[in-house]
Amino acid sequence: MSDRGHLKKTAHLAEVPASWESGPRGARPRRLLSTRTIVVYGTLFVAAAYYLLPLYVMIVTSLKGMPEIRLGNIFSPPLEITFEPWVKAWSSACTGLNCDGLSRGFWNSVMITVPSTAISIAIASINGYALSNWRFKGADIFFTILIVGAFIPYQVMLYPIVIVLREIGLYGSLSGLVIVHTIFGMPILTLLFRNYFAGLPEELFKAARVDGAGFWGIYLKIMVPMSLPIFVVAMILQVTGIWNDFLFGVVFTRPEYYPMTVQLNNIVNSVQGVKEYNVNMAATILTGAVPLLVYFVSGRLFVRGIAAGAVKG
């Protein structure tokens, strides 16, 4: 950063005393700033380049023709832009004998993600509500088991769930997978909602009780309308989490219901035929597009969601 940059920076800081106060460092911005700024920004830009590189390579590769890929290097921009790999990835890429592209996986994933997100959030928010406002004896025991269960490797519970689903006749179906996502989303979401509801003023709840509202009335008329932000956070968490799932999709569904991630892996890692790297990369971007879109649109809420999802307890 040049000297001008430094001047601009101090001027900018002087203008906004609020952000100045909230930061961790105190006065004396004039000293050392130029060398330090170079180091700070230099490192950050190098790191940013490293993080962006794969995305760039994915996009560039997906827009090239195969001859160009074989000759050129992966970082060079395409000489001739073609969208054919995208079309092929969407509608005619093959997994084994099946050649109807990723579109089937996409719609499967939609059919899995939408009900799973809705049901898991509905159940978890009711759990959180019951746990924070209507705590009954023994509720905390279940909650503790739930939270501890969040740390148990999924592999431990896979087979018992297979048996349960087989008993109720849902093994291999989309509804079975929806149940599985609801189960494994429950610990984090319940925690999220419990903490949020516990933070709401208790007077509201008491006033509603005095006015004669019951369990469901308070939930639907007071808790849900007051907690829309946390519902959005939960939605972000679930949509990205369920869309990105691979293990449950592979274990609990039949091939015709495979979600997009599973199908993507089958397309790219299938051993038959010539490897079409451009189609593979187009398919990879298509699969990553939904969570990326959620991420870019939601911005800070996403950060809040993962922080809530990550910091348990």
Binding site: Y51, P54, V57, T240, N280, G288, L292, Y295
Partner: peptide
């Protein structure tokens, strides 16, 4: 922050396939 965090939104499958290519 957006740049550093976006890979976290991607699935491990996507991550694995990109790096397989790189």
């Amino acid at each position: 922050r957006t740049v550093f965090l976006y890979p976290f939104a991607l699935s491990f499958i996507v991550t694995g396939l990109v790096w397989q290519w790189l």
